[in-house]
Simulated assay, not measured.
Amino acid sequence: MGTPLLAIEVISLPVSDVDRALRFYVDQVGFTLDVDYSPNEAFRVVQLTPPGSKCSIQIGHGLTDADPGSLRNVYLVVTNIEEARNRLLERGVEVGAIRHKTPVGAWDGSFKAGLDPSRADYASFADFSDPDGNRWVIQERGHQSV
């Protein structure tokens, strides 16, 4: 018997206001609304998917007991971090400055401001948070092949 395939398909995101989070992720970040289901007042599930992703997020009532805003460092991978950051800024998302790993070849956890000079995969980053403080990291990969 072989190793079973494992795929991450959904991440539950703890939020305090489902409608505010829904507007943020759809209107500002650009996620697609897949499902908004609430059979009663105690339970609601809203599923949203980033464009091009096979993994979605769920927000709602009765999904998680995690504190709103406690999720950290979920990565959104893009082929052009400057373009992705500018689009988010245009849509009203507060995105941190782009930074890159240094030294890339023997990375020790240090960063420098700006894009990685060679646009190497996994080397350039920027951050943003949702209204509750759940933190996302934008990471560039595949820029050389575009």
Rank of each mutant, 00 (worst) to 15 (best):
L115A: 03
L71C: 10
T64W: 05
P103T: 06
A106H: 10
T79H: 14
A106S: 14
R141V: 09
E94F: 01
D130Q: 11
R72Y: 07
A106V: 03
K112G: 05
A42M: 06
H100N: 13
H61Y: 08
Y25F: 15
F43E: 06
A120Q: 10
S16I: 09
A120S: 14
N73I: 05
P103C: 04
P14I: 11
V10Y: 07
E83K: 10
I138P: 01
G62I: 08
T79W: 02
A120H: 06
V77E: 12
V26D: 02
I11N: 02
E9L: 07
P39V: 10
K112R: 15
D121F: 03
N80M: 02
A7K: 15
A84G: 00
S124W: 05
H143A: 09
G109Y: 09
L76E: 03
E140D: 08
L89N: 13
T79C: 09
V35A: 10
S110R: 12
G114T: 08
S38H: 14
I81N: 01
K101N: 03
E82D: 15
L76H: 08
S56R: 05
A66V: 00
V93P: 07
E9G: 14
D132Y: 10
R85Y: 01
G109F: 03
A123R: 05
D130V: 04
I57P: 02
T3K: 09
R72E: 13
G133Q: 12
S56G: 13
N73V: 07
R135F: 02
A42S: 15
S53N: 11
D130H: 09
L76G: 08
V29S: 09
T49C: 11
S53L: 12
V137K: 02
A120K: 07
D121C: 04
